[in-house]
Amino acid sequence: MAKNNPIVFLVDDDPSVLRTLPRALEYHGLTVHPFDSAKKFLESYNNQHGCLVLDLSMPEVSGLELQAELSERGITIPIIFITGHGGVTESVTAMRAGAVDFLEKPFLPEILLERISEATAKDFEIRQANDEKNTILSRFHKLTGRELEVYKLLIEGETVPSSKVIASELGISHRTVEHHRARILEKTICNSLPELRVLAKEVGFVVPNNIGNSAAE
């Protein structure tokens, strides 16, 4: 994923808007994928980076309904609503549901460009944060079975238990525990056990269910 090729997805049922608006945006160097219905957009969208410029009132699936559907699918693409109606009620609903912006037609193309760049930047941030999280999570996933057992005991309690406690709990030697502990910190690139605990919480890493239970036997 690169920051410099965001895609603007435009969903509007009006053919003249669908023809002229992408043309204008493309002349400003943007990549635009136009759709004349929410359904067609949903069929083709594959979690690409960018933003969604969405007409509020369309037949069949309205803009608000598409917004709800996306949120249900866990798709976080920022939405800029455009409307020829300017309905107060709908705009409030849309903004409450997390739309980034609401523009009344006809707007200046440069204003839309501004909002698009804000929205794509936001999308980039979200994706970057997600990527970071995934990178860290992938480090946690490198932990082996025995390491995970040690890790679980290190994380679970109010305070960090000593190697001796862990050793007796798992029925292994105290030196082996210390060895595993060092490997855990190494693999997750953490300097200390407190740092490890904070990081684990941040990325929401959960030890798989089958780990630890068997060790307690």
Binding site: D14, T20, I82, G84, K105, P106
Partner: peptide, 25 residues
Amino acid sequence: ATGLAHELNQPLLAISASADTAVQI
């Protein structure tokens, strides 16, 4: 007025977008 607004705002946006494209060209 509401109906007209909705119907007229679409071509107005198309005009606006086209004018912008023309400027770029």
